[in-house]
């Protein structure tokens, strides 16, 4: 489940950035939205997807 949520959040960041093209025409506004999208995508990868794999890491199960 965490994998699916992580993937959706990662893609959401991309969508936010693409939507910035139509939500505003100002460079500053687009910059803010693109940076927001970047942060969301990075959270999806590092905060959700990687967390899933860390939970089930081989070294936690003593395979090391």
């Amino acid at each position: 489940m965490l994998i699916l949520v992580g993937l959706l959040v990662t893609l959401l960041g991309f969508l936010i950035s693409v939507l910035s093209l139509t939500l505003t025409s100002s460079v500053g506004g687009r910059l803010v939205l693109v940076l927001l999208g970047l942060a969301v995508s990075m959270f999806g990868i590092m905060g959700l997807l990687n967390r899933h794999y860390l939970k089930n890491a081989n070294w936690k199960k003593g395979v090391n």
């Binding site: 990662t10 893609l11 959401l12 960041g13 991309f14 969508l15 950035s17 693409v18 460079v27 687009r30 910059l31 693109v34 940076l35 999208g37 970047l38 969301v40 995508s41 990075m42 999806g44 990868i45």
Partner: peptide, 15 residues
Amino acid sequence: VAQLMGVVTLLGFVF
């Protein structure tokens, strides 16, 4: 902004 759009595409879509 155009460059950052590429960065988000790489992280959000390509990944």
